[in-house]
């Protein structure tokens, strides 16, 4: 028993994948751009392609930042759970190995935020 308790103590986690109505959670963070104060949480269908994530989901979310339009996506470095990672753009999130509550980050070389402040 992983908790000090007076009797058996075991509960179903509150955030199982099946509670998200066919979606799974994916967290995304943009390195060196902390004007967006924290990484984002998205509920997405696992069948969505990685290209749709980048080309449809992210632009309205990050578009406010002047650096976003300048991103050279071919040069972007991706990380999954902090480790370098290579996404397949035309494969689904599932095929890309992205499970419920995975966290990915992207680094945009040469772009380091407002006045280089990582904002």
């Amino acid at each position: 028993m992983a908790v000090a308790a007076i009797r058996e103590y075991s509960f179903t986690p509150l955030d199982l994948e099946e509670k998200f109505h066919g979606n799974r959670l994916l967290y995304v963070g943009w390195e060196d751009h902390l004007m967006f104060c924290a990484p984002f949480a998205f509920p997405l269908p696992s069948s969505m392609t990685f290209r749709d994530l980048v080309e449809k989901v992210l632009p309205p979310v990050y578009g406010y930042h002047p650096d976003f339009a300048r991103i050279d996506w071919a040069a972007v470095q991706w990380f999954k759970s902090g480790q370098p990672w290579q996404p397949q753009w035309d494969e689904s999130l599932e095929k890309n190995g992205l499970r419920h509550k995975d966290v990915i980050r992207f680094r945009t070389p040469g772009l380091t935020g407002l006045q280089g402040s990582c904002s």
């Binding site: 902390l34 004007m35 407002l114 006045q115 402040s117 904002s119």
Partner: peptide
């Protein structure tokens, strides 16, 4: 000035 002022000014 280094990390936060640029955000506020923007």
């Amino acid at each position: 000035d280094k990390y936060y002022r640029p955000r506020w000014e923007f």
